[in-house]
Computed example of a mutant assay.
Amino acid sequence: MSRTAQAWRDGLSCLFRSGCPQAATLLAAAITLSACGIGGFSLVKAEVDRSLLTGAVSSGTRAPSDSERVSDEATIRNAVSAADVTTLDGTALAWANADTGSRGAISNLTESRNNGALCRKFTTSRESYDGVGLYHGEVCTAGSGLWRMMNFQPAL
């Protein structure tokens, strides 16, 4: 027989013998535990705890900091400039910025010529720790294969 089982058996037999030092302790524990269950538990008797308070989260989202915005704009610019517009066929183009934790999808990508420069207009979502936003933007070639963000504004 295991030691635990033997100790349990000895404790129970001690409870019913007189002169056992553990009897008083075991009897007190049994009475205490049984007293907890006498009243029973009822959901009808349960009351709402009115001492708990909750707070509200601001519905407005904070604007990204300048460094976050510049970094996200560069990531979006690179994604738009590297995209093959002919193969997208209306499919959204995903982007993610590991530096800021932001990500989104570029859609409505159209290409045009503006004063000899190749330009691409687009709409993008921006999901980050501070919320979700929708933006309209335009990038154009600036010579030597470089692209420049011409416009990047929140959609209203």
Results as ranks from 00 to 15, higher is better:
residue 128 S to L: 01
residue 149 M to L: 15
residue 132 V to W: 08
residue 77 R to Q: 07
residue 30 A to E: 04
residue 28 A to K: 09
residue 27 L to N: 08
residue 67 S to K: 13
residue 77 R to W: 04
residue 109 L to I: 05
residue 44 V to M: 03
residue 145 G to T: 11
residue 107 S to I: 03
residue 126 R to M: 15
residue 31 I to N: 14
residue 121 K to G: 06
residue 51 S to H: 06
residue 90 G to V: 12
residue 50 R to K: 14
residue 134 L to C: 01
residue 92 A to H: 02
residue 63 A to K: 14
residue 77 R to S: 13
residue 19 G to C: 08
residue 75 T to H: 04
residue 11 G to D: 14
residue 70 V to W: 06
residue 62 R to L: 06
residue 50 R to V: 15
residue 146 L to T: 06
residue 22 Q to K: 06
residue 62 R to W: 06
residue 133 G to W: 05
residue 34 S to L: 14
residue 136 H to P: 00
residue 52 L to M: 14
residue 33 L to Y: 11
residue 48 V to W: 14
residue 29 A to G: 10
residue 18 S to P: 03
residue 25 T to K: 06
residue 19 G to S: 08
residue 151 N to W: 05
residue 152 F to T: 01
residue 81 S to R: 15
residue 142 A to E: 09
residue 51 S to E: 11
residue 38 I to W: 09
residue 13 S to D: 09
residue 78 N to P: 00
residue 150 M to Q: 08
residue 74 A to I: 07
residue 105 A to M: 14
residue 70 V to R: 08
residue 49 D to K: 11
residue 64 P to H: 10
residue 101 G to N: 03
residue 114 N to R: 10
residue 114 N to M: 11
residue 54 T to M: 13
residue 54 T to H: 15
residue 101 G to H: 07
residue 23 A to D: 13
residue 100 T to Q: 00
residue 70 V to D: 04
residue 17 R to P: 01
residue 85 V to W: 12
residue 79 A to P: 05
residue 114 N to A: 02
residue 144 S to T: 13
residue 15 L to C: 07
residue 23 A to F: 02
residue 36 C to L: 14
residue 96 A to S: 09
residue 40 G to N: 02
residue 45 K to P: 00
residue 81 S to V: 13
residue 69 R to S: 13
residue 54 T to C: 15
residue 19 G to T: 05
residue 62 R to T: 12
residue 37 G to E: 07
residue 89 D to I: 06
residue 42 S to N: 07
residue 88 L to P: 08
residue 22 Q to N: 15
residue 49 D to P: 02
residue 128 S to G: 12
residue 80 V to R: 00
residue 145 G to D: 11
residue 52 L to R: 12
residue 53 L to K: 10
residue 44 V to Q: 06
residue 51 S to D: 12
residue 85 V to N: 08
residue 37 G to K: 04
residue 92 A to V: 04
residue 152 F to P: 00
residue 26 L to Y: 07
residue 24 A to E: 14
residue 79 A to D: 04
residue 66 D to I: 06
residue 142 A to R: 08
residue 117 A to W: 01
residue 98 A to V: 13
residue 107 S to G: 07
residue 73 E to P: 00
residue 131 G to Y: 03
residue 40 G to L: 02
residue 33 L to A: 14
residue 95 W to P: 00
residue 90 G to P: 08
residue 14 C to H: 05
residue 53 L to C: 10
residue 6 Q to M: 07
residue 9 R to S: 12
residue 31 I to W: 02
residue 20 C to V: 06
residue 37 G to R: 03
residue 87 T to G: 03
residue 114 N to Q: 01
residue 60 G to T: 10
residue 42 S to K: 11
residue 151 N to G: 02
residue 145 G to Q: 05
residue 103 R to S: 15
residue 11 G to L: 14
residue 4 T to V: 12
residue 110 T to C: 04
residue 6 Q to F: 14
residue 26 L to I: 13
residue 135 Y to D: 01
residue 42 S to I: 12
residue 53 L to M: 13
residue 124 T to K: 02
residue 67 S to P: 00
residue 26 L to W: 08
residue 128 S to Q: 03
residue 41 F to M: 11
residue 65 S to H: 03
residue 54 T to I: 10
residue 133 G to N: 04
residue 60 G to F: 07
residue 76 I to F: 02
residue 86 T to R: 03
residue 141 T to K: 05
residue 59 S to Q: 12
residue 128 S to P: 04
residue 92 A to R: 10
residue 6 Q to S: 07
residue 74 A to S: 15
residue 27 L to K: 10
residue 140 C to Y: 00
residue 59 S to I: 10
residue 62 R to P: 01
residue 22 Q to P: 09
residue 49 D to S: 09
residue 93 L to T: 06
residue 20 C to H: 11
residue 154 P to Y: 01
